[in-house]
Computed example of a mutant assay.
Amino acid sequence: AYSFFVTYANIDGVTVEKAPDNPENPLDRWILSETERMVEDVGRELDNYDIQKAIGPFVNFIDLLNNWYIRRSRRRFWKSGNDSDKLEAYRTLHSVLLKLTLTASPFIPFITEEIFQNLKTAGLPESVHLCDFPTADTARRDFALEKKMETVRRAVVMGRALRSLHSLKNRQPLAALHLVTKDPAERAILNEMRDLIQEELNVKKVVFRENEEELVEYGVKPNYKVLGKSLGKDMKAAAELIEKMSQVDVKRLMEGTPVAISLNGRRIELSPDSVLIQRTEKENLKAANEGSLTVALDPELTPELVREGMIRDLVRGIQNLRKEKDFEVTDRITVTLSGPDELKHAVAAFESYLLQETLAESVAWENAAGQEKVECGDQPCLVGVRKVI
């Protein structure tokens, strides 16, 4: 986050003094709120002389800052003009980094001193170690917004875990994400933030389902540790009945309601902890459950989705080549390509996106000296980049 801020602040020639009082963008309000939460948590543990617990909150905060706020805000900094939203983003990020530096200074004194020297504004002490430890500004806390982002991040983390588990690359667009939640408040939050979830998980649409049964089928087995002692020789027969239990009864158990079965004239009441319930994804879906929330990805790829995935891989490859050649982030380039016909079709369909994302002025199909191999979907291609002078 610090490197990102310095890079783009220098490009835009931005100088900042303080965080905006009431930023319009919810991402700014959220990260400012999380900053005060972090300061409060770290300060409390330091007051308790628990150094190990004090480290956790600011390490977690760095993850939120880098992998959520910066990722979600990048395009705000990339805009060519210095509009109010962009300036508020700079002021917010500067304020957050400065307070993080003050909070982390007892733990990493030398790094924070170097960062402080570059971030400090008029009126601040000469050294970070001459500053008071920050106190949390409770007026900055927005508990409702923190809850919203926590809920959204939970859904996104589950979706990314599914991608990883089933080898579905993050850069490959998918047709849909399906969501089921038993919590009306959670559903309202997810629905409000569906565009953000859609972009984060790289899916074309987010679909809300009423029942988990639309996504998965349930299987049930006896919990032998619980039932074995009470059923004894009847355990085998009981297991057969339990495994044939209807989906309605399985759902009742999942909701915490006991279910009775009849065995040799004997009524046996099954509690939720007396069975083991297994979820099996329905065909063409990859699903996961955590508490009240179930998410499922549709992994079926159309030709259009495959081509878009190829372009996203190509963009990543070109960006890596730019870094390897030490191009500045503002340098314009030209691109030469050599690859299969499928890649040509993909470039033709998404050329404007490719040019915009890589700051390329043109793409030419030719074999040229200095081209390097880049993976585009399942097929390699050769890519060359040259800075426009």
Rank of each mutant, 00 (worst) to 15 (best):
K373G: 02
K373D: 03
F350T: 10
E113Y: 10
K233M: 01
T330Y: 00
N211F: 07
L241A: 05
R160H: 13
A188H: 12
D28V: 01
A364T: 15
A136P: 03
I55G: 02
V39R: 07
Q117K: 15
D137M: 08
D28S: 09
V220L: 10
T35G: 09
E45W: 02
E199H: 13
V259T: 09
Y69G: 04
K18G: 02
R75L: 00
L285D: 02
K233N: 13
T15R: 15
L145A: 05
P222Y: 11
K282Q: 10
A1K: 01
T294A: 03
L227V: 06
L305G: 07
N284E: 14
G219S: 10
A104W: 01
G291I: 08
L270R: 09
D249I: 04
V59D: 05
A136W: 07
M235H: 02
S127C: 07
Q172L: 11
Q356N: 12
C131A: 11
A89H: 04
A1Y: 01
L382A: 13
R75S: 03
D137G: 09
A54E: 12
F116W: 07
R316S: 14
S246Q: 13
E17T: 11
E199K: 15
A369Y: 00
A296G: 05
L98V: 12
L297A: 04
E213R: 13
N48F: 01
V157H: 13
Q172W: 07
S3F: 14
E45P: 00
M245H: 06
R163P: 03
C376E: 01
A368Y: 03
A54K: 05
K387F: 02
P26F: 08
R160S: 04
D132N: 15
A175F: 03
M254L: 15
F5D: 00
L297F: 06
A9L: 09
T15D: 09
D341N: 12
Q198C: 14
Y49Q: 14
R386I: 02
F77N: 01
N202H: 13
E361Q: 09
V42F: 05
K148T: 06
L168D: 03
I389Q: 12
P20F: 02
N320D: 11
F143A: 12
A369T: 13
E17R: 14
G256E: 05
V216K: 03
E199Y: 10
E366Y: 00
L124Q: 11
M254P: 06
L65S: 03
V363K: 06
V157Q: 12
S352Y: 11
K387E: 02
F61D: 06
I318H: 01
D132M: 09
T103P: 08
E372L: 14
A349Y: 02
S167N: 10
A368L: 06
S167K: 14
L87V: 09
N25R: 10
R44W: 00
S362H: 00
S274T: 09
L174T: 10
